[in-house]
Design a protein around this nucleic acid. Sequence first.
DNA 1: CTGAAAGCGCTAACAA
DNA 2: TTGTTAGCGCTTTCAG
Lengths: 364, 364
Amino acid sequence: MARVRISDVAAAAGVSVTTVSLVLNDVESRISAETRERVRAAAAAVGYAPSSVARGLRQQRTNTVGLISDQIATTPFAGRMLAGAQDVARENGKLVFLVDTSGDRVVEDAAIRALAAQQVDAMIYAAMWHRVVPVPESLPADAVFLDCRPEGGGRRSVVPDDHAGGVAAVRELVAAGHERIAYVDAVPGPGRPIAADLRLAGYREVLADAGIAADPLWHVHGEMSARGGRDAADQLLALDDARRPTALFCFNDRMAAGAYLAVRARGLRIPHDISIIGYDDQQLIAAEQDPPLTTVALPHYEMGRWAMEVALGIRVGETDATHQMECPVIRRDSVGPPPAHVGKQNRRRASQHTERSRDATPER
Amino acid sequence: MARVRISDVAAAAGVSVTTVSLVLNDVESRISAETRERVRAAAAAVGYAPSSVARGLRQQRTNTVGLISDQIATTPFAGRMLAGAQDVARENGKLVFLVDTSGDRVVEDAAIRALAAQQVDAMIYAAMWHRVVPVPESLPADAVFLDCRPEGGGRRSVVPDDHAGGVAAVRELVAAGHERIAYVDAVPGPGRPIAADLRLAGYREVLADAGIAADPLWHVHGEMSARGGRDAADQLLALDDARRPTALFCFNDRMAAGAYLAVRARGLRIPHDISIIGYDDQQLIAAEQDPPLTTVALPHYEMGRWAMEVALGIRVGETDATHQMECPVIRRDSVGPPPAHVGKQNRRRASQHTERSRDATPER
DNA sequence: CTGAAAGCGCTAACAA
DNA sequence: TTGTTAGCGCTTTCAG
């Protein structure tokens, strides 16, 4: 069955193609209501659907946007970014081209060129975790960076505010009355996420702020997996009673899940004996723990929306700077007050911090 | 900076646009090697990139394919399907339009029409879990269904072979020497995945085949979550010694993770006291358990590839039937022989099944 | 209020 | 071996 063209509609309605185009595109014009009606009826009757290809050629806009990513399709929560971007696109009548480069620079370059050849109206360059990315040479200057920062800056980008997230997490613990708070960190060295340093800074800031002298032994490292978290947490639990932390801030939920194992192995209970807070809010991990894990959520969906909104020019006035998006604390059941026999003398000071943690978003 | 057109290249090379088109598209033709070289140089010099929009209009093929899905972007492992489809597309110089409808029929219909207007060369309709889907009216007849079966059949589709997967899982257990094997199933009623019934059938088949009379109490149900799995498994563990199963086949990995909890709560060890096998191979769950969970993998990546290959006509000769794709057993550490004090007398028979389980894909 | 016609950038008959 | 030219289906001046 051959494609039905605008001329078919024109013929059916007994008017010119101009008229059809005018009414179907709602161009403010002086087409009589009667003709308008006739054209619409004819279009419906013959089952007309305009060719966006022809329209794209004529108007030089295709109503499509390209989304290039290293692995957006294969990482669990990054799909949320896609969904956010996708929703905004749809709300605005755009279709999105998705290209997953699996991190291959050659593929990436080819993809960007292919997208440019398609005359996409905008491009978004996404990473699956917060990091600094080299800017592909062929990438248009107005592309927006999603969940990554362009090397050298000077481009619009959106990333999670991991510093504020670290602050929020530790404040949550302080507010519950904890003073001996440990940070179960990722391993130093290359491959270390910048988020790890940002969250660490937040951790230190809150402790200093609360007048708590952090014991260096409370800062432990492990691989970013359940096993790594378990081993790192175990070091903490092995400390003698006077130094053993009552609360753990884990770099991510996988490590937190490992910490659960270490805690359980020693016959301790969460949150009765020890409180744990994670990061990422990975549904399959955090919500399924026993007890469910309190954590800090990565705002993937919102970042996806933001990126698409600025890419389409819906959200204006954004400077060429990096936008930091808030990471909210998701309260579940893994944080409680410290055991009665420790730190009682500081309860008063702790409650001041409770007040504080109720403030609005931490500044910065 | 204005777009550079083919005529610009022609001018720069001192030839006609035809010549440029011919050499740049490698059309077997009698263009002299010298001219060819000159054209290529000119194209590179002016930075020419052909407009796929114009080409699409002219050739009536756009080298794009549309992928409609209910929630492909937001479910963890379904991203693998996208990756598979994506890879095949890229290998063939196609770009894929992704549309996530969040299950909204109106959005879905609009998306299909938009894709048709874009003149995509093919369409794939994907679901995020194996089920029967109503066929959208506007969907082209040659669209291929991914991870779902079209209501009424008669379309090309690919789904996991959940029956064979169930068989493989239970054979794995039988091969290890188990006879008291339970199935931790999803709850009956609406919303029950068809995979649950298929796997159940596989379970029954293998037991019957092995001459094991299944105790009806070994078939328990629970919500498809860790909590549901824990509660269901606990019913099994509460059975008296003579009937308590030594191995659990869980409908999915989440439920298996719950079973771990139940086992641990009773002070039992995996796989020493009880063996567990899951389904799905959700990385974040299965690989991170302690011990790592043996499970059956859903071949998402392969299904994605298959769908794209038939959509593009690369894989030919596929009938209008449903293609079932093998689900391989992923061996980790949660399956071992049953405790020494049970079922010893049957060791011999069990070993026959070991032989059997080494066969190629189970027939059906 | 409506229509004729040009042209978006490209490919492919057909000519030369 | 290369060039001319007619569209692909649509939007949009410009005339009527």
